[in-house]
Design a binder for these strands. Structure first.
Lengths: 186, 186
DNA sequence: GTCTATACTCTGATAGAC
DNA sequence: GTCTATCAGAGTATAGAC
């Protein structure tokens, strides 16, 4: 090695994340990426086989970051308070990193039940929900909560909720969902 | 007019819908579209200013179709039964027309509160939800229900729910949500 | 007015020299 | 590991035939 490598997978990933967060997935092209790294586009292919692999790596990063955020937000709480704290942290992550979050549930394989970091995230949600419903392996309830969280995040991202009321829909829906799910253990 | 026009906006739209439903948004290119219509790509631009306009037209179609499906599914019912029937029809539409449905909530302007056919759809959901909660203009509750429906549709589309359990999450979540929302009028 | 022909720019990706 | 050179395919714009 006559000279240190200009590129490394992590350096590429960092710049890619920057461009994605700035301008969305469309703004992340191999050419702009190479230019920012002062390298020719084809050089990137020595570190990532194609653009899809780069996006997949970014998705893994997002899953881990989201998981960490949820754990931190709810670590010092339990029961309903823990689930609510995690839910707010979930929405907050989707707000702060909309394009990164947008990678998460693209029409692709899983992540629920898939190997990799997504499993931790799923298990975390499952545990928090189980604490509410009192049932073990309560997949149905966890799916319901996740669906609500994701749906609200997408609705919000797609523009409508202005300064007006609908934002209250999150608290309202979350409460209703938790009430309805936990009431079942009667 | 010496000869009948080979193209018309509706003919283009029909073929575009076909290609979209077959292979998703990526498969719908101006070139393949022109080929199927036996025309040069640039001819399409006499009828639609650009590809985005075509997708917007397809989205309008999807909104109308979804609205119609919801109305038909719940027309002969009322109260909770009507909402549940509409919810199932919503999910069914997303299953049968995944790519068309995928156009609906792309990160774009509205459709809630926006002019055009989307408003009818929103108002319909709002009415059905109000019948449950007993409050007028209960935007928060309607947003909560819509978020759940959309979130579940996306989760399902992204692959995980195999033959196993999670499908029960829809009934479970819908019941819990309705219970929690209607209990509020105590 | 409708469509054809052509070309421009941008994308992701590959082959082979060094 | 990075380069040069090059490719095929995308969307799009314009000039002109009929």
């Amino acid at each position: 090695m006559p000279y240190p490598a200009k590129l490394s997978p992590t350096a590429i990933l960092e710049e890619a994340r920057r461009q994605l967060e700035d301008g969305g997935a469309e703004a992340l092209t191999m050419r702009t990426l190479a230019e920012a790294l002062q390298v020719r586009p084809s050089s990137l292919y020595r570190h990532y086989p194609d653009r899809a692999a780069l996006l997949a790596a970014l998705e893994d990063h997002a899953v881990s970051a989201l998981h960490t955020a949820l754990v931190q937000a709810s670590s010092d709480q339990s029961g309903r308070a823990a689930l609510e704290a995690a839910a707010h942290a979930y929405l907050e992550y989707a707000r702060v990193h909309p394009h990164l979050y947008g990678l998460l549930l693209a029409p692709k394989p899983p992540y629920v039940a898939g190997p990799g970091p997504g499993k931790d995230l799923w298990n975390f949600v499952l545990e928090r929900v189980e604490a509410i419903t009192g049932q073990r392996d309560d997949t149905a309830a966890a799916v319901a909560v996740w669906a609500f969280l994701h749906g609200f995040a997408v609705l919000e991202r797609s523009g409508q909720f202005g300064a007006s009321g609908p934002r209250g829909g999150f608290e309202r829906g979350l409460s209703a969902l938790i009430d309805g799910l936990s009431a079942r253990r009667g």
